[in-house]
């Protein structure tokens, strides 16, 4: 039981950083960015390919696993951020101000294109991270630590540390910096933000770049967790992350973090109690339950707005 909760917590950390991307975009554009999961998948592919390539060229033997992982994450971040930026420029920006169904359908279209594009070019079978490489075994492949009934894998710790660091970093960025405050202002009133001199298009681009970069990190971690990257991995994780965002209160940054962790734990409890066959369904049931009981989510709408 405790073991399951721990696993759920680690998984939840990953959901949380993906959920941040959904929530930030929704906060500003009121758009569910369906392509977000695909951006994660692209990050995962880039990351796993980098890792595998490092293993193949012997770089991993020379410098060890962790520097290669860092490189994979940086590479994935850059590629995904570029994709996020390009998607917004090419599809969402022309649809700004159109009736709300149009951007949504456009987003589905983008998601379909990316998924099938990767499937066609990289193949329908997964690509594998070099988890049997001696350098990996020497660093993260070491045996688990047992603390009481819970067995903690080194990879779990890496995932948690990265997730916590990213969330703290994002929090500081949004709360303390000029661009972060401009992002919050834009999400509250886009026209007014323009009237005080904020370049709204730039803020939106920054939002997409940051959200996509976070998704890329999550994608690499997820690929390590599952030892592989597959073209449809973005679909399921995207769905779950969106549930997490709704659970926490969509548009709300701390809500997304909380929602992600809660969802991971809830899923673990579900597996413990009801079995693993319905793993994919729990998040959907949770989503429905949230919508029935508290549609604005746990942290949604904290301040009453005066008109």
């Amino acid at each position: 039981m405790l073991q399951n909760l721990w696993n759920g917590l680690v998984q939840g950390g990953i959901y949380a950083i993906v959920a941040l991307g959904y929530t930030m975009v929704y906060g500003i554009l009121l758009l569910i960015n369906f392509a977000h999961g695909e951006v994660l998948m692209i990050g995962a592919y880039t990351g796993v390919a980098t890792l595998a390539g490092c293993a193949g060229t012997g770089a991993m033997e020379a410098v060890g696993f962790m520097p290669c992982l860092a490189m994979a994450i940086i590479g994935a971040t850059c590629v995904s951020a570029a994709y996020g930026f390009a998607i917004e420029r090419a599809v969402y920006r022309p649809l700004r101000g159109a009736p709300s169904l149009s951007p949504l359908i456009g987003a589905i279209g983008v998601s379909m294109v990316l998924q099938n594009y990767v499937m066609r070019t990289q193949g329908a079978s997964p690509i594998y991270a070099p988890m049997s490489h001696p350098a990996y075994v020497a660093s993260l492949g070491a045996s688990n630590w047992d603390i009481g009934p819970v067995s903690i894998a080194p990879l779990d710790l890496v995932v948690l540390v990265v997730c916590v660091a990213l969330m703290a970093g994002l929090w500081m960025f949004v709360q303390r910096t000029r661009t972060g405050t401009a992002m919050r202002a834009t999400s509250q009133d886009r026209v007014m933000a323009g009237l005080v001199g904020i370049d709204v298009n730039r803020v939106i681009s920054v939002t997409f770049v940051i959200g996509s970069a976070l998704a890329a990190v999550a994608g690499v971690l997820l690929a390590l967790f599952n030892t592989q990257a597959k073209y449809d991995m973005g679909f399921t994780s995207g769905m779950k992350a969106f549930t997490a965002a709704v659970l926490g209160g969509i548009g709300n940054v701390p809500g997304a973090m909380l929602g992600g962790v809660l969802l991971g734990v809830a899923e673990a409890v579900g597996i413990q109690l009801l079995g693993a066959e319905y793993k994919e369904v729990y998040s959907f049931v949770i989503l429905l339950a949230v919508l029935i009981v508290r549609p604005k989510g746990i942290l949604g709408e904290r301040v009453a707005e005066k008109v």
Binding site: I42, Y45, T46, V48, A49, T50, L51, A52, G53, C54, A55, G56, T57, G58, G75, V79, A82, Y83, A86, Y117, V118, T121, Q122, I127, Y128, P130, H133
Partner: peptide, 18 residues
């Protein structure tokens, strides 16, 4: 073209490299 390069063209293989 630039976006396609890393995602569609680049292959990493743990025995042969990039």
């Amino acid at each position: 073209f630039l976006l396609a390069l890393p995602v569609a063209s680049l292959r990493g293989n743990s025995s042969t490299g990039f």
